[in-house]
Amino acid sequence: MSKFKTLTNMISVELEMEVKSKAKYLVATLADFTVFTFAYLAVLFFSDTGDLNTVYRTNDGVMLILIGYMFWTLGVMAMDLSTQTIEADSRAGILETELQSSFPLWFLMLIRVWVLIVLTGLYLLILGIITGAMTGVSIGTVVVITFEVLLISIISNIGMFGIGLIFGAGSLIFKSVGTWATLLQTGILLIANVGSNYSSNLQALIPFGLGIEITRSLFLGRQISLATIMGYLAVNLVYLLIGILIFNGGLRHERKFGSFERF
């Protein structure tokens, strides 16, 4: 097989197997979504919708929060996948085989991310429709918002995936880093423009910070500056590159000093 054909074959097989696996873990996936729904309700409760309405000169503050929350949820999913894959695959004893493959492990995990993103997208669509029904926003508008979030968050999910790779490297070496990842995700939720307006350029350093603003601008029919788009791309590219570098460093360390089998 040509290199291109083996690459596309790997992508399609990984997608197929991930879909089949996820279908078997439906209960766990639904439990995850339940937890995320509580997080959404908490964000709605603690956010100042009136303040958002004033800053953005709109009456759709709740939808702006929904957009922020969608980015955060998708980002968290993309970030968690690295550590989850490493921990699950080493327990199952398949990490060794995956490490023997000529396809880099981070690439295999990146394919799996998209299955998770599509599944999470369906959940967010339902959540959006419910939110829309309660705030008088049409289903059509919610579908458009969800589609735009899914499209624009491709970039920030890659950045969040890059941060996840850093935790993945930690997971390879220190074995259990899940708590630290959760702490970071909660911290991001508090300081990012998820349930609030974009108030500091430091928020642009959060992978989805500018993505939220781009989508909010699209929703409100406002112009988006080229600098915002370029900044969004650059921030996430840097996170991905740093993530891959650190993850590969972690792999080299574990190859030399570890066994990949201590779970």
Partner: peptide, 23 residues
Amino acid sequence: GERGLRNKLTVMDNLKYFSALRR
């Protein structure tokens, strides 16, 4: 041990996955 294949996949699906990994 009882390890080495993906738990939620059939044996043939596992074979498909590993054959793709190995080209």
